[in-house]
């Protein structure tokens, strides 16, 4: 089970060495920064855990849908909408005089992400619209809503015209998990979500129905598992997780709503979900790996002068090699001589 991801990581490293060398960068140093530096100080390791929280949370939600062949590609949009909805409270109550501010923000974020994903479910079940396209387009719309709010009604009046909201009051911020770091309790949310996903997908009938719908849709129909329900559930849970992750981002490391909330977690989580084999336990491992690459990538851009895009290429290579090794482990290539008809 671990053959494919490990092999993929090795191949990715080899390909990156060639690529970095071709760029004229010190390839060995770049790889060292990318994969080892994050472990060399407690602070950088805590940053890995900080990155891991949203990736893990979103990927667990997405994987549930993916197992049922429901392809939510626009978790980024649900993440943004979750962040928006959560931000509404501190924006309108900047002094923090709202009871249970933080739980309400998380709830708003969860609700926002879920509803935003369910738009795609409604269009798919009613009109047969592909959820791949709908969620992707909704993600682009979410970015524009974010821009509108930050440039207009929600702009901080004392923010020197920067497109960002006021800084959130203290009671709108997630508690820090380890003193001296930025790692907050959203990591706990993500781990709880992993336990939930594991129990549901491996031991609950609902998860069995989702898996059946993904592996053999006609068997699901034969058994009488409602196909629309699988779509609602798959998209809804993905949106829920992404929404909570979005809320945690503004109530965590950002402390306000700003444009940089669109950091690509929603897209990276797709890679995380697949490299983790869509398995709840595997995803814990893959989210950690991708987080290491994020943090290592930051230091590699500084220490080895890698362009920022190189880190994204590294992630892309990882997914590519994973899908390749996964396929080649399951199937055998047979070269068929052309048979004239």
């Amino acid at each position: 089970m671990l053959t494919a991801p490990v092999l993929a990581l090795v191949l990715t490293c080899l390909a990156s060495l060639v690529l970095f060398a071709a760029l004229g960068k010190p390839a060995g140093a770049a790889l060292h920064a990318l994969l080892l530096k994050p472990f060399l100080s407690w602070y950088s390791f805590s940053e890995v855990l900080l990155k891991m929280a949203p990736l893990l949370l979103i990927a667990q939600g997405l994987a549930i849908g993916f197992r049922a062949n429901v392809f939510n590609i626009g978790a980024e949009g649900q993440f943004i909408v979750g962040a928006l909805c959560a931000s509404a409270l501190p924006v309108y109550f900047p002094d923090g005089d709202f009871p249970l501010m933080l739980p309400a923000m998380i709830a708003f974020g969860a609700l926002g992400g879920t509803v935003y994903a369910l738009i795609a479910a409604a269009l798919r079940t009613r009109f047969g619209a592909s959820e791949i396209l709908v969620t992707l387009m909704l993600a682009l719309i979410a970015v524009q809503i974010l821009n509108y709010l930050l440039l207009g009604p929600w702009k901080d009046p004392r923010g020197f015209n920067f497109p960002q909201t006021v800084m959130f009051p203290d009671n709108a911020m997630l508690p820090i998990l380890f003193d001296g770091t930025r790692t907050n309790i959203s990591l706990i949310f993500a781990l709880l979500a992993s336990v939930f996903a594991y129990l549901m997908m491996q031991h609950h009938f609902r998860g069995y129905q989702l898996r059946t719908a993904g592996l053999a849709p006609r068997a699901a129909l034969y058994a009488g598992f409602s196909a629309p329900r699988m779509v609602w559930l798959g998209l809804g849970l993905g949106g829920l997780a992404a929404g909570i992750a979005g809320a945690s981002e503004v109530a965590g490391p950002l402390g306000q709503l700003q444009r940089s909330v669109t950091s690509g977690y929603g897209y990276a989580a797709i890679i995380v979900a697949y490299v983790g084999g869509l398995n709840p336990l595997g995803i814990i491992g893959s989210s950690f790996l991708i987080s290491v690459i994020y943090i290592g990538g930051d230091s590699a851009t500084v220490s080895a002068g890698l362009p920022v895009a190189a880190v994204e290429v590294f992630q892309g290579l990882l997914l590519f090699f994973y899908l390749m090794t996964f396929t080649l482990i399951r199937f055998r290539i047979e070269i068929d001589r052309k048979v004239p008809a």
Binding site: R211, T212, L215, A216, R218, A219, L221, Y222
Partner: peptide, 9 residues
């Protein structure tokens, strides 16, 4: 296969 039973299960 694929209707009366799920092949991968």
């Amino acid at each position: 296969l694929g209707r009366g039973a799920v092949p991968e299960m």
